[in-house]
């Protein structure tokens, strides 16, 4: 089979998956989580009459980004989207349509993963950046333009990039969990707990949490509190490829699993 045809098939799998996610409950749930910080930011800006003191805006948004977006909404969105890529189709009894096509199962997994990444990356990255802009805009006339001129564009790009990396890493984790575990919520909660205690872990163990690499890439550093174990941030040259390497490894594992997968939905 030609490489061109395989690329076409990859695109077709991704397109069909995006359509499935748009029309399905899991995609809508992820969208709800993605839009939540924007709604919150809009409410804060609307309700709070006085501007946030200078210099605090970036800091406050970084707190929101690191604690609400990265560790709650994006995380949960990834559980729903990536956890359902294979498992969701098994439950809906539609997986066989893909398996009965002349497409390598590895291509199916990759296409689905990319669709999940596009959806979550665009939604969480996009709404995070919008939330950031709304907070800046709420500080008074011309504040948005001024902030963007003073490095805000770079910060926005960094937030978007961190979201993409987070979706790539967490997405691959939940893609695999969705295949191995009937109810991925339980291990998802366990991983969530591990990621949440990362700030009190010793340096060596910190590096076993994806959140450590993501926070190292955050454009604004936030004090993690008096009980936090202060560790060196991971350098950019390691913090960027680490989630990607994790994702590649886990997607390969998912592809291996799907290659050996049987579909009978319990019939006969």
């Amino acid at each position: 089979m030609s490489r061109e045809k395989r690329w076409k098939q990859l695109g077709a799998v991704a397109f069909l998956e995006l359509r499935r996610l748009f029309f399905g409950r899991d995609g809508l749930t992820a969208f709800f989580f993605a839009v939540l910080p924007l709604v919150l930011m809009t409410l804060v800006v609307t309700i709070r009459r006085q501007p946030i003191p200078g210099g605090r805006v970036e800091h406050d948004f970084a707190i929101l980004f690191q604690n609400l977006i990265l560790q709650v909404t994006l995380y949960l969105g990834c559980v729903y989207v990536f956890g359902s890529l294979i498992r969701g189709e098994q439950i809906a009894k539609t997986l066989h349509f893909l398996f009965l096509s002349p497409v390598r199962r590895e291509v199916i997994v990759l296409g689905k993963y990319l669709a999940g990444l596009v959806l979550t990356g665009a939604a969480f990255g996009g709404f995070s950046v919008l939330s950031y802009f709304v907070l800046l805009y709420g500080q008074g006339t011309g504040s948005l333009t001024a902030a963007l001129g003073a490095g805000g564009v770079g910060h926005a790009a960094a937030y978007f990039g961190v979201c993409l990396l987070a979706c790539a890493g967490y997405g691959a984790v939940f893609l695999v969990l969705g295949q191995w575990v009937k109810n991925p919520i339980v291990p998802a909660i366990a991983i969530w707990g591990w990621e949440h205690i990362n700030f009190v872990l010793p340096e060596v163990l910190k590096r076993l949490g994806l959140i450590h690499y993501l926070l190292s890439l955050s454009p604004v550093t936030v004090d993690e509190g008096f009980i936090a174990v202060i560790g060196e941030p991971v350098p950019v040259w390691l913090a960027i490829p680490a989630p990607l390497v994790l994702a590649v490894g886990l997607v390969a594992l998912a592809a291996w699993k799907v290659r050996h997968m049987e579909v009978d939905y319990g019939v006969e």
Binding site: R20, F23, A92, F99, L100, P102, V267
Partner: peptide, 21 residues
């Protein structure tokens, strides 16, 4: 599957279809 499903069509008894199509 790449070779097989160029020549095989299977009408299953599974009743579900993808949502929205």
């Amino acid at each position: 599957p790449e070779r097989m499903f160029e020549t095989v069509g299977y009408c299953t008894s599974f009743e579900a279809f993808p949502p929205g199509a």
